[in-house]
């Protein structure tokens, strides 16, 4: 019973947020926190649990965003129907690039994923079908409710909350399954995991495919809300980095780490931009950078990391 107390309180708070904070900007802020929390939680499956630090997850985010808006642009169907296509594309791409790249150790994997993401951005920039440099737009005026185009952010908020719950549910289930056990073993030492009987490449690939598919859903949701994607906003390296730092800041490899990271960084960025951005001296990012540095300096395991280290020995980086 006690175990469910805090998750329960968190759930009530999340459900009540848009009813307590009623201005459109506050509600949008809440929706954005959830959107980034979905993306960072999806990243967490492979980056946190399996310890394979992808800096190219934006490829999968882009699959979702582009599938939704490309479907609308070329067929006129509601963007939300592109979501399954995006998932299929993301899982397909993950299967193709996962096999060779997941063999790479440590930073080599990170660098390979950056290269893949940049490749995707450059190719998209030169592909007419995907809107090339101009990008793709959604329906300018909603035609039916299926376009999921709302003035208020509240419908998005609850939609994103539902998807976040599903994402965290899948993660929770995985964490407790045999796969989760193997993933943690692999993260701590791949050799040891093999001796435990884990087929490391296969387990890592499963986590990678799952993570890719969920990240793609975040991309589709982004496209529904903003109704626009171009190569920089759909496939830029900054989005990959944001997923990573949100998860790392909250606590990578912890179920609620990405949500906490997003709940800190998204309001920090939006509010400091609102208060300071108009002065035009880059103060927003000085503040943003300073806070990240301080958290990394004093809580390298992330905000929730303290109780993780109590549970298991701090990991060593394998060279």
């Amino acid at each position: 019973m006690k175990k469910l107390l805090w998750p329960g309180i968190t759930a009530v708070l999340l459900l009540a947020y848009p009813l307590v904070f009623t201005t459109p900007f506050q509600q949008r802020l809440g929706a954005l926190v959830l959107l980034y929390a979905i993306a960072a939680s999806a990243w967490n499956i492979v980056g946190g649990y399996a310890g394979q630090i992808s800096v190219g997850h934006v490829v999968f985010f882009g699959c979702g965003a582009y599938a939704s808006l490309a479907l609308f642009t070329h067929t006129g169907l509601p963007p939300v129907l592109g979501m399954p296509l995006g998932i299929a594309a993301a899982v397909g791409i993950a299967a193709i690039i996962g096999t060779p790249t997941l063999r790479l150790s440590g930073h080599y994997f990170s660098m390979a994923t950056i290269a893949v993401a940049e490749l995707a951005r450059l190719v998209t920039t030169n592909t007419e079908f995907l809107g090339a440099a101009v990008g793709l737009s959604g329906p300018t005026v909603p035609r039916t409710w299926l376009d999921l185009s709302f003035i208020s952010s509240v419908p998005y908020y609850y939609l994103f909350l539902a998807v976040l719950v599903i994402t965290l549910g899948i993660t929770w289930w995985m964490e407790r399954s045999r796969i989760g056990f193997y993933l943690r073993a692999i993260r701590d030492s791949e050799k040891a995991a093999r001796s435990l009987g884990a087929r490391a490449p296969r387990v890592k690939l499963i986590a990678y495919l799952l993570s890719a598919g969920l990240t793609s859903v975040a991309g589709s949701l982004y496209a529904l809300m903003f109704q626009f994607v171009d190569p920089e906003s759909g496939l830029g390296i900054l989005i990959s980095v944001k997923m990573l730092i949100m998860a790392a800041l909250g606590g990578a490899g912890l179920l609620f780490g990405p949500l906490v990271g997003a709940a800190i960084l998204v309001p920090l960025e939006e509010i400091s931009n609102s208060l300071l951005g108009g002065r035009g001296a880059g103060l927003t990012f000085v503040l943003y950078g300073a806070i990240i540095v301080l958290i990394a300096r004093f809580r390298p395991d992330g905000i929730l990391g303290l109780f993780q280290s109590a549970r298991k020995a701090p990991e060593k980086h394998d060279a």
Binding site: G282, T284, F285, V293, A296, P300, D301, G302, P314, H317
Partner: peptide, 28 residues
């Protein structure tokens, strides 16, 4: 030195924060 006590990802977090700090301090 402190970041190295954490997981590999903490280095990315810390040095990325440092990058923003340097870039936008210079900007200011």
């Amino acid at each position: 030195r402190h970041v190295m006590r954490g997981p590999m990802i903490a280095q990315i977090l810390g040095t990325f924060g440092l990058a923003l700090l340097l870039r936008y301090s210079m900007f200011g």
